[in-house]
């Protein structure tokens, strides 16, 4: 991909201060988001997916490192350009009950950004555009929705309103943070399909955040996956490469737990047991590779000494952060 990325993260660190303790949440993140691609961020709860998503959407600043939007830092743009860039990146929140203001009707929620940024001329056009948007996200007939308040809609409908609201400002990128995890399973697929259609229609890039590798596999089959662990990206590459041939022990473990559609395949799968189920706290991240206390292929003296960097390992198409793999060694189970 030689296109100009929409967003580039170069060596980004982010920490939060909580009761005078510094919590490092993101460390040394390198990540590009290209136009019209699907990129999935996958990882356990608390590994920093949302924080990464908010940095991409320019809602949070990096503590260290460089974030480029269309090739330039935010500070290099003037006020007007900054507003435009910010609007190019929209966020769809996880919780559809919290992301719509209970005091506004759906028509108002969609109308405010349209009016504010003069995307429409006059009332007729405003109404027309709201009609259009609601139809786009399959909320039809619009008349049943437009004058309702968010609390009168179901979770799935609200999530659709939330997506329609993101579309009001013609974004180039949508960060969907666990966008379907709080929606009934039966309507998830509908919303995911709709996101795909919208991506094709408006040439959108989608950063899809999820803790569920199976969902990532389904949603980003044509795109890329970045697997995160404790604030770092441990593996990144094309979804098909990662699913077919996972490199990092953490990805392998995650993947071995994903059920297959074919029960015979599921039965044949060898689960890869971790040495520990305990996720270390962010204030006490293990030295060296953060995953080594749980890694089934732990090599003492190698993994707990220096921090692995993302690189292509021999025999793999994707990049991975695992010292034995990138130096071309075979992984051997710990203790044998």
């Amino acid at each position: 991909m030689s296109q100009q990325p929409l967003v580039e993260l170069h060596g980004v660190y982010r920490s939060f201060e909580k009761e005078r303790v510094r919590i490092p949440v993101l460390q040394d993140i390198h990540l590009n988001v290209y136009p019209n691609e699907v990129l999935c961020l996958v990882g356990e709860s608390g590994c920093g997916k949302t924080t990464t998503g908010k940095i991409i959407a320019s809602l949070l600043d990096a503590s260290e490192g460089e974030v480029l939007y269309n090739g330039r830092r935010m500070a290099e743009y003037d006020r007007k350009e900054r507003s435009l860039i910010r609007r190019q990146m929209q966020l769809v929140h996880q919780d559809p009950f919290a992301s719509l203001n209970p005091a506004h009707t759906i028509g108002q929620i969609l109308g405010y950004p349209l009016k504010r940024h003069k995307m429409v001329n006059g009332r007729a056009e405003l109404r027309r555009r709201i009609w259009e948007l609601l139809t786009l996200v399959d909320l039809t007939p619009p008349g049943d929705i437009v004058n309702k308040f968010p609390h009168q809609l179901s979770g799935g409908q609200r999530q659709r309103v939330s997506i329609a609201r993101a579309l009001t400002v013609n974004p180039k990128l949508i960060v969907a943070d666990e966008a379907v995890s709080m929606v009934d399973v039966s309507i998830r697929i509908g919303i995911l399909k709709m996101l795909h259609n919208l991506r094709d229609m408006f040439n959108l890039a989608i950063v899809f955040i999820t803790h569920d590798l199976a969902l990532a596999k389904y949603f980003a089959w044509e795109g890329r996956i970045a697997v995160m662990y404790l604030g770092r990206i441990v593996e990144i590459g094309r979804t098909q490469d990662i699913i077919a041939n996972p490199a990092h022990p953490y990805t392998r473990a995650l993947l071995s737990a994903v059920p297959e559609a074919d029960p015979n395949l599921t039965r044949k799968k060898q689960p890869i047991p971790l040495r520990s189920d305990e996720i270390p706290r962010l204030t006490a991240i293990p030295p060296g590779c953060a995953f080594h206390p749980r890694c089934p292929f732990y090599q003492p003296g190698v993994c707990d000494v220096s921090v692995p960097r993302l690189a292509q390992a021999p025999g793999y198409a994707q990049d991975t952060a695992c010292i034995p793999l990138t130096t071309g060694e075979q992984l051997v189970p710990y203790g044998t």
């Binding site: 959407a57 320019s58 005091a103 993101a166 400002v169």
Partner: peptide, 26 residues
């Protein structure tokens, strides 16, 4: 800190809107 205020920020609706329309009514 509500999500809808965050959405208003990414939609660049402005500080006045955020205070008077998003926060105040609640």
């Amino acid at each position: 800190e509500r999500d809808y205020v965050e959405a208003a920020i990414t939609l660049d609706l402005g500080l006045y809107h955020i205070i008077m329309r998003e926060i105040f009514p609640n």
